[in-house]
């Protein structure tokens, strides 16, 4: 356990960095996922095609492949950024495809009559989506989208391993490989760090789900 106690500050800063990545990742992928889901149900065929293509391509590629494309592919076509930006962007884009599908399940659970009634009183497509369909869809989407976000927190380790650096996973890696600490205690510390993010996330989602269930 010395490995943890002696490096507590390192673990803590790694935890904070991972937390930052996850918060931005969650915000970014929820927004992007909502936009893509909107495209998938839009009355405009090219938008639907775009949304479907986005989900099909990204959901079926391994995260590592998406990240390699970003970190090494984009500079080849003249787009440059640091690993942190590339890593975060890759994580957001990868997760958005799953958020989109979770949301779409929610949208499909809202009866078609709701959107028709909205259109019938003169709401535009965007208004009927934001006022009527999405608020109801979000409720049913909380469990599936919540699972996606928890998976994203764990996937942030892949982004860390990819060279973002100084995150929880990288801290564990450098302690074991560069500084020669035994793997088991160090990785226990790393695992505790991730649990400190995923467990509260799960609890928060459960609470959110109960709250909107009562409000109905």
């Amino acid at each position: 356990m010395d490995a943890i106690t002696q490096n507590l500050d390192l673990f803590w800063s790694g935890f904070l960095r991972s937390l930052t990545i996850c918060l931005w990742g969650a915000v970014g992928s929820l927004i992007l996922g909502t936009i893509i889901a909107t495209c998938r149900v839009a009355p405009v065929a090219p938008l639907r095609t775009f949304g479907t293509a986005w989900v099909t391509v990204i959901r079926n590629c391994p995260l590592t492949v998406v990240l390699v494309m970003f970190a090494f592919g984009l500079p080849e076509i003249g787009i440059n950024a640091d690993f942190y930006t590339f890593g975060l962007a890759g994580l957001i884009i990868y997760t958005s495809a799953f958020v989109c599908e979770g949301l779409r399940a929610g949208i499909n659970s809202v009866s078609a009559g709701q959107a028709e009634a909205a259109r019938a009183i003169g709401l535009t497509f965007t208004q009927s989506l934001t006022q009527i369909v999405l608020p109801q869809a979000f409720r049913t989407s909380i469990p599936p989208v919540g699972s996606v976000i928890i998976a994203m927190i764990k996937n942030s380790a892949v982004v860390g391993a990819f060279g973002v650096g100084r995150d929880l996973f990288s801290v564990g890696e450098s302690l074991t490989s560069a500084q020669g600490y035994a793997a088991l205690p160090v990785l226990t510390g790393v695992a505790i760090g991730y649990l400190m993010m995923t467990l509260p996330a799960g609890l928060g989602l459960g609470a959110l789900e109960r709250r909107v269930a009562i409000a109905r």
Binding site: G113, Q114, A120, I132, R216
Partner: peptide, 15 residues
């Protein structure tokens, strides 16, 4: 908006 519609299944906004 100028044409009111009443549906068989009411379709009130549930939320």
């Amino acid at each position: 908006a100028d044409v009111g519609m009443v549906f068989q299944s009411f379709n009130l906004f549930a939320h």
